[in-house]
Amino acid sequence: MTDPIYPADEASGLWVYLEQQDGRLAGVSLELLGRGRQLAAEAGGKLTALLLGHDVGPLADEAVACGADQVLLAEHPLLQHYTTGPYTDVVTRLVLDRRPDILLLGATANGRDLAGRLAVRLRTGLTADCTDLRIDAATGLLLGEVTGFGHGVLATIQCPRHRPQMATVRPGVFPRPAPDTSRSGSVEPVQVRLGEGDERVRVVRHSSRRGVDITQAKRLVIGGRGVRGDFALLRRLARALGADVGATRVAVDEGWARDDMMIGQTGSVARPQLTIVCGASGAMQFTVGIQDSETIVAINSDPEAPIFELADYCVTDDVFQVIPPLIEALEREKALGRR
């Protein structure tokens, strides 16, 4: 096997890579700071946040308020937009200089783009798309829990010898910490050596949309293939409930719903109080995104659909028959409430 680039006994500290866009930290980065804080305490080490970008200084204070003991701040015009090459170079240099034990990233598109590249550059192991992270009390190793090994089975992956132990985590898995502005931490600007030649992939155009952040929804109405494109109906139901609208991958692939509305292994993980799943079969890659809901309602015309195994209230009927009277009932209720 390739030798570790530095030995485990010389590695220390837990690092969280912060993803930022348009002057905001990604939700998953805040979630990682919250969980990272707990894990660092368990491991008896420091929590360091890595912040790369251009003019992103103010975000460093937010990272401290959310749990970082130290922020390594790397600023450079070439880091304004995420691109693989320069970001990999900067993080690699910091890792080689300071030898962290653990490096966590969000499993977003760019987080996975960076993590996959870094893990090979650093010749280390990466546990991707974790649904939980723990520290093994006996060995002190990072344990990453992953699904995808089949229905109802979770595997725990570890990286015994190679450092840093890397993992990516899906958005929404951990709760966001409440910022505590009285926390203190250091912000250390680090030197960035990059030249035009380091940037092989150039961002020609960038467009980001501030959609709803579905991971934070308290109530969620989700549509699958069975909704046959009628997301307008779901939006009416959602409005009557004060809920957000999510979608299965099929519904997103069909173009009925936007990418950022996708729930599940490829999409987001949400933990609402109430989830109403309409016309979705309940594939495991989908249900990992809703299994921690407090109450789940499933509406599906097929009584054998696996989604019912996960539901508290099961309606075996056509969504187009059941949802309109439900909307009416909700609206009547609201009208009564106002009187």
Partner: peptide, 12 residues
């Protein structure tokens, strides 16, 4: 050649 190993398998 794989630095990661499966530490355990459990029920969801």
């Amino acid at each position: 050649g794989s630095p990661t190993t499966v530490a355990g398998v459990s029920l969801a």
